[in-house]
Amino acid sequence: MKHLDIKQIQEIIPHRHPFLLLDYVEDYEPGEYAVAYKCVSYREEFFAGHFPQEPVMPGVLIVEALAQAGAVAILSEPENQGKVAYFGGIDKCKFKGKVVPGDKLRLETRIIRKKGPIGVGEAVATVDGKKVVSAVLTFAVG
C-alpha cells in the first residue's frame, strides 16, 4: 500500500485550502486508482450555511472530493506531473445518504478508461461501509 499525507497530496494535485477535500490517501496506484479519506469536521466552512440547524456536507463537494481522489491517481503518473485534471462530465451520479460532522468519508476512484488526455473513473464514497455517493466521472488532463 502506498500512503500519502497532506503535503504529499499537495505535491500531486493543485488544490489548496479551503478547496482541498482530501486529508490523506490510504492507497493508490498511478493511473489506476486512489483510496482517500476526508474526516468531516463541524468546523468545515460550508456547514455555516448548509444547513445551520442540520449540517449536511453538500453533495457536489462529495463529488469534488471523489474527483480529487481520481486526480491523485491520474496526476501521479510521471507524464502528468505538474498538470491539472479538469471535469469533463459527471454521469450516473446517485446520492444515497447524508454526510454529517464526525463522519469519516472514504473516497475511492478507479480509472476505467483512458485515451490521450481524456479518461473516465468510477467513483464511490462511503461512510462506515455504507455507500453515500456513486458516479462516473470524465476528466481531461491539461
Rank of each mutant, 00 (worst) to 15 (best):
H3K: 15
L4T: 00
L4E: 04
D5S: 07
I6H: 03
I6G: 04
K7Y: 15
K7W: 14
I9F: 03
E11D: 12
I12K: 03
I13E: 00
P14N: 11
H15N: 09
H17K: 11
H17V: 01
P18L: 05
P18D: 06
P18G: 02
D23A: 10
Y24T: 13
Y24P: 09
Y24E: 15
V25N: 02
D27M: 09
P30D: 10
P30I: 10
G31S: 01
G31Y: 05
Y33H: 08
A34D: 00
Y37N: 09
V40T: 08
V40A: 10
V40G: 08
S41F: 14
Y42R: 15
R43N: 15
E44T: 01
E45V: 08
E45Y: 08
F46A: 08
F46M: 12
F47S: 08
A48V: 13
V56E: 10
V56K: 05
V56F: 07
M57Q: 05
M57Y: 08
M57K: 02
P58K: 02
P58V: 07
P58Y: 00
A65I: 05
Q68K: 09
Q68S: 05
G70S: 04
A71N: 05
V72T: 05
I74F: 11
L75P: 03
E77P: 04
E77M: 11
E77G: 00
E77W: 02
P78E: 14
E79D: 14
E79S: 13
E79L: 14
N80R: 06
Q81V: 12
G82V: 05
K83G: 03
A85V: 06
G89N: 01
K92A: 09
K92M: 11
K96S: 13
K98V: 13
V100E: 13
G102E: 07
G102C: 04
D103C: 10
D103A: 08
R106H: 04
L107V: 10
L107F: 11
E108P: 02
R110T: 13
R110C: 05
I111H: 00
K114V: 06
G119F: 08
G121E: 00
E122D: 11
E122Q: 06
A123F: 08
V124L: 15
T126K: 09
G129H: 04
K131R: 14
V132F: 00
V132T: 05
V132L: 05
S134K: 12
S134N: 12
A135S: 05
T138P: 03
A140Y: 13
G142R: 15
